[in-house]
Computed example of a mutant assay.
Amino acid sequence: MDFHCHLDLYPGAKAVSEEASRRNEFTWLVTTSPRAYEATSKVLGRLSRVLITPGLHPELVEQRAAELPQLLKLMEQATAVGEVGIDGSYRFKSSLAIQRKVFEAVVERCKELGGKTISIHSRGAAKEVLSILLKNPGFGTAVLHWFSGTLAEMEVAHKMGCWFSLGPGAFASTAGRALALRLPRDRVVPESDGPFANEGGVQVQPWSMNRTAHLLAESWGCSEPEALRTLTDNGRNLLEVMGWPRSQ
């Protein structure tokens, strides 16, 4: 399983996507803009066990904010939403105000639609992301992608019912490994964040779940099969929340 992946952005995207469909029980293809979602759906939309969702990546918001109405419309028929969120890093400081506006609009729309599962980017902005979610009870289910907030923010997110998706790339830093150790084990699901994430200079592939289990086992002090079972059980539980049919 892979709960956050940009299949459409890999070199040889069609072949990689077909391989992911063959290997994985489930792959969540998050898109970076409404236009990307529509194009990707046309090219890859018939793949089994692959969910493609509309999003508007916070790193692109400054250039693509005009696509927000299109995103809000696409959300009406979408099973889930992503990638959306806020990036509070220095590089995107100038667009924070518009990022906030877009994310608030998305969360409010999720609430209006009766709740959606959302894959959320929160680098350097976990506190603000959680605050917006808390202001909109009924928004649905949050999956915090590659969470890098503080332990206190992680506890708040856990109490809110958030999930945490992470992959091999999250273990590259000391801080990432320390955070993985403390993540609530019943709320962790696998992701790759490919093709952006890498491990040892090599792109992480969408079928990296076993590698994530290996790294989690080292952090958790358990066996690799136990960590793999935990990820599998958690993933299936989240799929039930999402309403994703296992038969696909």
Rank of each mutant, 00 (worst) to 15 (best):
Tyr10Arg: 04
Tyr10Gln: 08
Ala13Cys: 08
Lys14Tyr: 05
Lys14Gln: 14
Ala15Trp: 03
Val16Thr: 13
Val16Trp: 09
Ser17Tyr: 03
Ser17Cys: 08
Ser17Phe: 03
Glu18Met: 15
Glu19Gln: 14
Glu19Cys: 07
Glu19Trp: 08
Ser21Met: 10
Arg22Val: 12
Arg23His: 15
Asn24Leu: 14
Glu25Met: 11
Glu25Val: 13
Thr27Gln: 04
Trp28Asn: 06
Leu29Val: 10
Leu29Arg: 02
Leu29Ala: 13
Leu29Pro: 02
Val30Glu: 04
Ser33Leu: 10
Arg35Ser: 09
Thr40His: 09
Thr40Trp: 08
Thr40Gln: 08
Val43Glu: 15
Leu44Cys: 08
Gly45Gln: 05
Leu47Lys: 13
Ser48Asn: 14
Thr53His: 07
Thr53Ser: 15
Pro54Leu: 10
Pro54Ile: 10
Gly55Asn: 10
Pro58Phe: 09
Pro58Arg: 07
Glu59Ile: 12
Leu60Lys: 11
Leu60Ile: 02
Leu60Gln: 09
Glu62Leu: 12
Pro69Asn: 01
Pro69Trp: 04
Gln70Asn: 12
Leu72Arg: 09
Leu74Cys: 10
Leu74Glu: 10
Val81Ser: 05
Glu83His: 08
Ile86Met: 10
Gly88Tyr: 02
Ser89Gly: 11
Tyr90Ala: 15
Lys93Glu: 13
Ser94Lys: 12
Ser95Glu: 04
Leu96Asp: 00
Ala97Gly: 02
Gln99Tyr: 13
Gln99Gly: 07
Gln99Val: 13
Gln99Cys: 14
Lys101Val: 04
Phe103Arg: 00
Phe103Lys: 01
Val106Ala: 02
Cys110Lys: 00
Lys111Ile: 09
Ser122Tyr: 08
Gly124Ser: 03
Gly124Trp: 02
Gly124His: 00
Ala125Gly: 09
Lys127Thr: 11
Glu128Val: 12
Glu128Tyr: 07
Glu128Gly: 09
Ile132Met: 02
Gly138Phe: 15
Gly138Ile: 15
Ser148Pro: 04
Gly149Met: 06
Thr150Arg: 01
Val156Tyr: 00
Val156Trp: 00
Val156Arg: 00
Ala157Trp: 01
Ala157Met: 00
Ala157His: 01
Ala157Glu: 00
His158Phe: 14
Pro168Leu: 06
Gly169Thr: 14
Ala170Cys: 14
Phe171Lys: 01
Ser173Arg: 12
Ala175Val: 10
Ala175Gln: 12
Gly176Glu: 01
Ala178Gly: 15
Ala178Phe: 04
Leu179Trp: 04
Leu179Gly: 02
Leu179Val: 06
Ala180Met: 12
Leu181Lys: 15
Leu181His: 14
Arg185Gln: 10
Arg185Gly: 03
Asp186Gln: 13
Arg187Ala: 01
Arg187Gln: 06
Val189Cys: 04
Pro190Tyr: 10
Ser192Ala: 14
Gly194Cys: 14
Gly194Val: 11
Ala197Lys: 05
Asn198Gln: 14
Glu199Cys: 12
Gly200Asn: 09
Gly201Arg: 09
Gly201Asn: 06
Gln203Tyr: 06
Val204Asp: 04
Gln205Tyr: 01
Trp207Ser: 05
Ser208His: 05
Thr212Leu: 11
His214Gln: 15
Leu215Ile: 12
Glu218Asp: 15
Glu218Ile: 13
Ser223Thr: 14
Glu224Phe: 12
Glu224Val: 15
Pro225Gln: 10
Ala227Met: 14
Arg229Glu: 15
Leu231Ser: 08
Thr232Arg: 11
Gly235Tyr: 07
Leu239Tyr: 05
Leu239His: 07
Glu240Ile: 06
Glu240Trp: 01
Val241Ala: 11
Pro245Tyr: 03
Arg246Lys: 11
